[in-house]
Design a protein around this nucleic acid. Structure first.
Length: 721
DNA sequence: TTGTTCCAGCTTTTT
DNA sequence: GCTGGAACAA
């Protein structure tokens, strides 16, 4: 047996973690310390050395991407197929259990998974039928409330009766929502976890079976688990010390959606025989970047205590750039990136990280203007697009006519003359008799209360679904999808739509057919689900990447949150201003402020070679000029670790568009005020201000066409006229 | 049924 | 100040 390949490449701490005897283990793994590596090698070790069958091992992650990566790495390391290994997200695994045991979980066999968009729509409709004013009861808030309850494991019937009218109303909605979902066979994300937990808790046979089966359970990003996820893990490992968790309390940045760092402390209490191993050697960043990040995170309280180090050398100091305004900030960043590329750096090694998505726009504009390829992460994902959801809704309705969410979505899409009045009538009947919309529609037709036209339209719709179902019976999955896309009238609808947008939608629908064709049924199926059900689940649970073009070499733009787990040689952490980062909503709250600080720590530790921190002295925000203070996090970095790009001693507020008098003869370096200059892109202009010297020298130029701009002399190709 | 206009809201996001 | 959604008019 060859075990060297499993342990030879590990450092001491990593090896200790990988080869530890079977017991509860808590691995505190700092950023860039080889967390995934330890997890992968540990599993390989259990199989290869411990002699455990692959099917007795479970590994849980938070994202599909992480799950896929882990599986691939284990396969690569052991050179064995891993389909027996249960590697997946909490939601994915919970879903699998629910499919296997739908009866015990009190779910219909055909239950469907709802994503958060579906959930929101269901809630909106529910508020309507309950006659609640949605300005007083914002659907998002209701959704948040329901999910928060479920994340804590609380059912509507468990909630204590409080005098608080707000609570009482929320409870009524929560309860009605539960009933609606049950009736429609719909399960939202939080429900997957809660139902999964209840399944194990209330069915001793099922629980015992899985407790026996899973000899080793591994959890990635443990600091991000919420209450119900942890409770689920505890059930599965009850009476055993077979839980191996990897996490970093300093990188907990999802507290706002229910993640509990406290689970790390609870773990130590609940598994008294556990061993803690800290991974502190960092293989990613230079010494200076790590030192700066360490200094910042040291300001947080209640840490487990970890200090990253590296033997890779100090590297460059971090750079700080104080921009005059947000335009200048974007300009500076893009110019630096262009220099980096000109010097042979690759675009995909650079990232612009920001606190909020809205900040991406300026950088996009500047990148676009310079013709630099870039990619923005976040935003609409493939399966989230309206046209895709419509097509899927037809398919879901065919699979389960009681799926109210889908029914409502497509009953009049494309328009077929079923107006608001008719739909209202259907809803009313459904509510009064506690039946699904489909059944209510049938009842309505029989009552003959509707105008002949509406009745015919409604019959037409029901017949369409039935006909589609019949025609689809013996077709392959992609043929079913194709049939629905065409016969439902969706393609026709989008073809008629105004050129640009409609065309894209048609293409997306074609892509959906294609996705169905490529869908690997055999690899996914284990629970005896139909191919269609499986495909629909896949669409809900893995809504797909937001954008293609993975292979093009481009600059990466994303929020700091979505950068977690990634690394880049050159990183720009932009908008380092009070009110932006830390965000305004967090500055008054100690707990949230510490989470912002962890976020800052996460952002900084993404950088391998060079880290730039930037802020703007003035920024246009919500249509008004603001003069934010530099972020407090900047002050937490010792000055010897940071180098200011712009020499602030010479700074005054940028001049307005007034041209200086030509008599002015103040000059710094090679330019003087009033000097007429030529720029290859901006054309002709006049120098307004000069500051800095050497590589940092900058001039402010008023261009005839392009307006006032600040230019770094070392980047901008200026010629004097 | 579609285009217009008004109005609220404005962190972070995966499943 | 911009955007997306909802309400409204033609």
């Amino acid at each position: 047996m060859d075990i060297t390949s499993i342990i030879e490449s590990l450092n001491d701490a990593q090896r200790l973690a990988v080869t530890a005897p079977s017991q509860a283990m808590l691995i505190l793994a700092g950023a860039g310390s080889g967390k995934t590596r330890v997890l992968v090698h540990r599993i390989a070790w259990q199989i290869q050395v411990g002699g455990h069958a692959a099917h007795s091992i479970m590994a849980v992650t938070f994202t599909n991407k992480a799950a896929k990566e882990m599986r691939a790495r284990i396969e690569h390391l052991l050179n064995i197929p891993t389909h027996n290994l249960w590697i997946g997200t909490f939601h994915g695994i919970a879903h699998r259990l629910l499919r296997r045991h739908s009866k015990e979980a009190k779910l219909p066999e055909t239950f469907q998974v709802m994503d958060s968009g579906d959930q929101l729509r269901v809630i909106k409709r529910l508020l309507n039928t309950l006659n609640l004013d949605d300005s007083k009861w914002p659907p998002r808030e209701v959704q948040w409330y329901i999910n928060a309850q479920k994340d804590e494991g609380i059912r509507a019937r468990h909630s204590m009766e409080t005098g608080d009218p707000y609570q009482r109303q929320m409870l009524i909605v929560y309860k009605a929502y539960e009933e609606l979902c049950d009736r429609s066979g719909l399960v939202d994300f939080a429900e997957l976890l809660l139902r999964g937990h209840e399944l194990l808790r209330d069915n001793p046979d099922v629980l015992e079976f899985y407790q026996n089966r899973f000899q080793h359970i591994h959890v990635d990003e443990f600091q991000d688990t919420n209450t119900i996820q942890y409770a689920w893990l505890r059930l599965l490992t009850d009476g055993k010390d077979n839980l191996f968790v990897v996490g970093d309390d300093d990188q907990s940045i999802y507290g706002w959606r229910g993640a509990k760092i406290e689970n790390i402390y609870s773990f130590q209490k609940h598994y008294p025989n556990h061993q803690v191993i800290k991974l502190e050697q960092n293989y990613r960043s230079t010494g200076n970047i790590l030192k700066a990040a360490n200094k910042i995170i040291a300001n947080n309280t209640g840490r487990m205590g970890k200090e990253l180090w590296t033997d890779a050398g100090e590297g460059e100091p971090c750079s700080l750039y104080a921009a005059f305004n947000e335009q200048d900030e974007a300009y500076f960043v893009v110019e630096r990136i262009r220099t980096w590329i000109n010097q042979g750096g690759s675009r995909s090694d650079t990232a612009i990280l920001y606190r909020s998505n809205a900040q991406s726009r300026l950088f996009e504009e500047k990148l676009m203007a310079t013709g630099t390829p870039y990619r923005v992460y976040g935003g609409l994902r493939f399966f989230d697009r309206a046209e895709i959801k419509n097509a899927l809704a037809y398919l879901r309705l065919m699979a389960n006519p009681d799926d109210d969410a889908s029914f409502e979505r497509v009953i009049n899409t494309p328009t077929r003359g079923i107006g608001a009045k008719a739909i209202d009538d259907i809803r009313l009947i459904a509510r009064d008799q506690s039946i699904s919309l489909w059944t209510a529609a049938v009842a309505l037709i029989n009552q003959r209360n509707l105008s002949a036209r509406a009745t015919n339209a409604l019959i037409g719709f029901l017949e369409l679904i039935k006909a589609l179902n019949q025609q689809a019976t013996d077709l392959a999955l992609y043929e079913k999808v194709k049939l629905v896309v065409e016969k439902s009238g969706l393609i026709g609808l989008y073809q008629k739509e105004k050129m640009d947008k409609g065309e894209e939608k048609v293409e997306n629908l074609e892509e959906l057919v294609n996705a169905a064709r490529l869908f690997d049924f055999d690899q996914q199926n284990e629970e005896g689900m139909s191919e269609l059900d499986l495909f629909l689940t896949h669409a809900a649970l893995e809504s797909g990447d937001s954008q293609a073009d993975d292979y093009e070499d481009c600059v990466q733009l994303m929020t700091i949150h979505s950068a977690k787990g990634l690394e880049f040689k050159l990183v720009f952490l932009v908008g380092m201003e009070e009110g932006l980062f830390p965000s305004q909503q967090s500055v008054d709250d100690f707990v949230r402020l510490e989470e912002e600080r962890r976020l800052c720590y996460v952002g900084m530790t993404r950088a391998m070679q060079q880290l730039y921190l930037t802020y703007a002295e003035s920024r246009r925000l919500y249509g008004r000029e603001s003069y934010p203070r530099p972020s407090r996090f900047l002050r937490e970095i010792p000055s010897e670790l940071i180098q200011e790009v712009r020499l602030r001693a010479t700074v005054s507020r940028p001049a307005t568009n007034i041209q200086p008098k030509h008599s002015s003869s103040i000059s710094v370096g090679s330019y003087k005020l009033g000097q007429r200059v030529q720029h290859e892109k901006f054309g002709e202009g006049v120098v307004l201000q000069i500051e800095g010297s050497g590589a940092q020298e900058r001039v402010q130029v008023n261009f005839k066409q392009a307006g006032v701009k600040w230019l770094m002399l070392s980047f901008a190709k200026l010629t004097t006229l």
